[in-house]
Amino acid sequence: MNCNETTKKYYRANKLPHIWCPGCGHGTLTNTIVRAVDKLGLNKDEVVIVSGIGCSSRAPGYLDFNTLHTTHGRALAFATGIKFANPKLHVIVIMGDGDSSAIGGNHLIHASRRNIDITAVVFNNNIYGMTGGQFSPTTPFGDLATTTPYGNIDKSFNLCSLAQGAGATYVGRGTAYHAPLMQKLIENGIQNKGFSFIEGLSLCPTYYGRRNKKGSAFKMHTFLKENCVDKKVVDKDPEKGKNKIIIGEFYNNPQPEYTESYQVIIDKLQG
């Protein structure tokens, strides 16, 4: 993990090294969250990091904030309870692809719909890594996993479209390769008073990569580098987006925030 002096103070050094495989994108993505928090100058005591279950869910344990490692898929529901009980807190939720969109899909839809001020970051590695490489809702059609030995016949989710359709007011996609972009999206997400959804494309060289012959972690990073195009570029020239993965800021449309709307009711009743 790339810890310089700036970010070091946000890590629980005694909990490192982390459990992620060599080449995994999760460490970089975790670091983009830390850098975003640092950039915004948030008080560590007022930051809460919540996760579900899976490889991504181990991130909070390494971070020196108020950290909550919950049950599979339920991170957003726990986070909703925390934020609603104490709206002063900055609540960031780290989820995996299966975690957020299979078992936790309903919670994602409804947290988005409520527009509660939570920043959700999905570490999308297209696979269930912790359990040894089963297909997830973001595993591409035709790809191999231990539970799709003959190729995946499920269609994969576009998580950003899902969140936006459900009502998230800030939506963007970055990758473990495009770390500065990822950091910027998270900063914007934290600053958005409402539900922000940031997808971080990660990579799993151990299970997804090996089984699908994607080559080394280096090669997988290179793939992200060469196949991702920012939305701003595609907006100007749609041709450049052909057969590419679109990244960047997709949606930024502030709307009344849930805890603030409730506060209006409290204030009214308390006169």
């Binding site: 909550l68 919950t70 339920r74 909703t80 309870g81």
Partner: peptide
Amino acid sequence: LASMAAIIGGSLA
């Protein structure tokens, strides 16, 4: 499922 999670979160807060 979410209700139970939310009251745990609220209590922790």
